[in-house]
């Protein structure tokens, strides 16, 4: 299953990834990060397609996107 990893140390809670995700997989945490922001969180992993649009719009390079290796025929 595709997944994203959000680096809480880099995330500034701008929510642009929330608006970018076509599957509404990303929400906002209600707990402060150590840097003082409410960071984004991967709230609906099951719907993630690994499209990486969240990473495209993230201004702080806080999102890493992973996909399963393509199956070799």
């Amino acid at each position: 299953m595709p997944e994203i990893k959000i680096d809480e140390m880099r995330c500034k809670g701008c929510e642009l990834c929330v608006t970018a995700c076509p599957k509404q997989c990303i929400g906002m945490s209600d707990v402060f990060s150590v840097t003082g922001y409410y960071p984004a969180k991967f709230s609906k992993p099951e719907a993630c397609t690994g499209c990486a649009l969240c990473a495209q719009i993230c201004p702080d390079l806080a999102i890493e996107v992973y996909k399963e290796e393509p199956v070799k025929k």
Binding site: P2, A55, Y66, K67, E69
Partner: peptide
């Protein structure tokens, strides 16, 4: 797992 995006 394959990382889709990487920091340039």
């Amino acid at each position: 797992m394959l990382q889709v995006n990487r920091r340039p």
